[in-house]
């Protein structure tokens, strides 16, 4: 029996653990992953923000990449075909600065054979032209979700920002807009200052905080949101170990994704997948799915 399998809209996953990125193929067999969530695609190529765009913090890091990507055309002609060599579903993250950007990318990228779901990025804190507005005003979030749902060939997950007063309200809005699932949380807005110049370390001034430092925030938000929506949640935010995975599932996530931890340990996804069964034994759990929402059920 596969004790880690998960069934989600559009996604039949070997394991409930998602990985990240092309560079990691040199470390382990990517087919081992439940799915791969690729970096945001926008209609046109983007070079991102000026450097420095990464700054370390205690148990975390700030980034202000600014949605650097080669653009829709190249992602469809090069990146996605490259990934077809691995037996692993892709969740394509899409971004833009106006609704038409989102629908243009969604309509095309959702037709790629290995793209099984879209992740709607309405919560990038590093893009000035509107990215964050989509993720902070419930009505706007609902509208963009609806528009993308209308053109997408695959289920649509919406990535929620923690930088809001009431995340439940946002979750309900995108559920009403037709979202098939949620992914949460995106990074928390943060800033670091240089001791000598007294100015921000990041050229973009502020950035998104990720890593173990934000885990308790993610757990709290998933715990709350999962009790108020009926669509599944893919949890993320500081996951660094098997124990973290279980905690996210207890909070109410149905699956998890690992981002930042890949930077310090490129084998992390592979290790978590290998070590999870042992932890399940220790906790007396037969299947990972039994953990979902245990904290409030």
């Amino acid at each position: 029996m596969n004790r880690l399998s998960v069934e989600l809209p559009g996604l039949s996953l070997k394991t409930g653990c998602f990985g990240f990125g092309r560079e990691y193929s040199q470390f382990y067999e990517l087919s081992k992953l439940g799915a791969i969530m690729i970096k945001a695609t926008t209609p046109e190529p983007r070079f991102g923000n000026p450097t420095p765009r990464v700054a370390e913090t205690a148990a975390g890091m700030l980034n202000a990449i600014g949605l650097q990507n080669p653009g829709l055309k190249k992602v469809i002609s090069e990146e996605l075909p490259w990934l077809t060599q691995y037996d692993v579903p892709v969740i394509a993250n899409i971004a833009g600065s106006k609704i038409e950007d989102y629908t243009a990318v969604a309509a095309q990228i959702s037709q790629a054979p290995n793209v099984r779901a879209l992740e709607l990025n309405i919560s990038c804190p590093n893009v000035k032209e509107g990215g964050l507005a989509f993720g902070t005003i419930p009505e706007v979030a609902k509208e963009v979700t609806k528009a993308v749902k209308a053109v997408s060939k695959v289920p649509v997950y919406v990535k929620l920002s923690p930088n809001v007063t009431d995340i439940v309200e946002m979750a309900k809005a995108v559920e009403a807009g037709g979202a098939d699932g949620l992914t949460m949380i995106n990074t928390l807005l943060g800033m670091r200052l240089d001791l000598r110049t007294a100015k921000p370390v990041l050229a973009n001034r502020s950035g998104g905080l990720s890593g173990p430092a934000i885990k308790p925030v993610a757990i709290r938000m998933i715990h709350e949101v999962s009790q108020h929506v009926s669509i599944p949640i893919i949890g993320m935010g500081g996951i660094n170990s098997c124990e973290d995975v279980i905690e996210f599932l207890y909070a109410g996530a149905s699956a998890v994704a690992i981002g930042t931890a890949n930077f310090s340990d490129p084998f992390i996804c592979s290790k978590v997948i290998d070590e999870l069964p042992e932890l399940l034994d220790e906790l007396g759990i037969d299947h990972l799915s039994e953990c979902i929402g245990r904290s409030w059920r």
Binding site: G60, T260, F263
Partner: peptide, 12 residues
């Protein structure tokens, strides 16, 4: 290199 086996500093 990892400077220690803790989370601070986080990166190699």
């Amino acid at each position: 290199l990892k400077a220690n086996d803790q989370l601070d500093p986080l990166l190699r």
